[in-house]
Simulated scan of single mutants.
Amino acid sequence: MSQERYSEYLYFTISQDSNQSAQEIVTQYQLDQMQGELNFWDKNQLNDEHTHKFEKICIRFEIGDVEYLGDFSQQIFYWLHLFKRKTKVQSLSGDFTKSLHLVIHGTNSQNSGFHLNHQLIRVLNELSIEFSLHSYWDAEDGQDFPFSTPVIQTQPTPKFDEYAYFEIRADELDTKELQQLLPVLNLTTKLDQGKNPRSQRVLPNSTTSILELKSTLNAEHNVLEQHIQNILKKLIPYQSELQRLFFNGKINLSIKATGHLENPHHRRISAQTIQQLFALGLSLDVDYYFAS
């Protein structure tokens, strides 16, 4: 039978490339005060099944299934609040890497993506936490046709690509007014008060205007972090203007990304990039597809 169950779950890790004892770190920083499953391994230690050898110290906290699929913000807010209150995580030195992991098991080619709103980016930035996406497209398990031999078919090589872009959006301004808010940036029009200038199609009852600034990196040879950094380098000189727009309730600022990726895939957003997104008042919205 083919697998039809879509799932998302979260876990959190603390890692360090050293020969310290993971048990001593857990005890020193009271990491065992968190409820839920906790596992830890020393550098070069094997897991119980002797199937994996750890390249560095790894301390893993199980957070659990995403309670509201597609929106884990409140769940993470609450977990990190308890984490700060019950442990001494804020006393960890800078050579520890703290990572939040989202694991997705999809059921179709569209099941891979996430959204980090600015509030969640603020909390991740506060604790210097990086973010990692791990996506898998569940496949056939071969039980639909018993007592048969699969016929090997040559499949075309899928094309992988991904890109990102900065987006500024407003519901009560046209694109000329929107462009005047950031006059130095060479923004392109995606939507002008509900009208798509390329197709000339008009969205019914829409007054939304959208301008965008795309990454200039090659879509086939660069990954999410590189595309985001390419855009941020163009935006950072205008940090004060963007911060002013962030407090304008009629303006929405974000970086968006999309693409067709391999199965499985892993994409990492560094703590430094999280910090820069927070400073510029940007949210991050990623919508990936499995290449088929």
Rank of each mutant, 00 (worst) to 15 (best):
S73A: 13
Q74D: 11
Y78I: 06
Y78H: 12
W79K: 04
L82P: 00
F83S: 02
F83A: 01
K84Q: 09
K84N: 03
K86A: 06
K86R: 12
T87N: 04
V89R: 01
V89M: 06
Q90D: 10
S91E: 13
S91C: 12
S93E: 11
G94H: 14
G94P: 04
G94T: 11
D95H: 15
T97K: 15
K98Q: 10
K98W: 08
K98G: 06
L100M: 03
L100A: 02
H101M: 13
G106L: 07
G106N: 03
G106Q: 04
T107F: 08
N108D: 10
N108I: 08
N108M: 09
S109G: 10
Q110H: 14
H115D: 06
H115G: 04
N117M: 07
N117Q: 07
H118A: 05
H118D: 05
I121A: 02
I121M: 06
V123N: 00
N125E: 06
S128R: 10
E130P: 02
E130S: 13
F131E: 00
Y136G: 00
W137T: 01
D138E: 13
D138P: 05
A139F: 13
D141Q: 05
G142K: 07
Q143N: 08
Q143F: 15
D144M: 13
F147C: 11
F147W: 15
F147H: 12
S148F: 11
P150Y: 09
V151D: 02
Q153S: 14
Q153Y: 13
Q153R: 14
Q155T: 12
P156S: 13
F160H: 05
D161H: 15
D161I: 07
E162R: 10
A164Q: 04
Y165N: 08
F166L: 03
F166V: 04
E167L: 08
I168Q: 00
I168N: 01
A170T: 03
D171K: 09
E172V: 11
E172G: 11
E177A: 07
Q180M: 07
L185D: 05
N186L: 15
N186I: 11
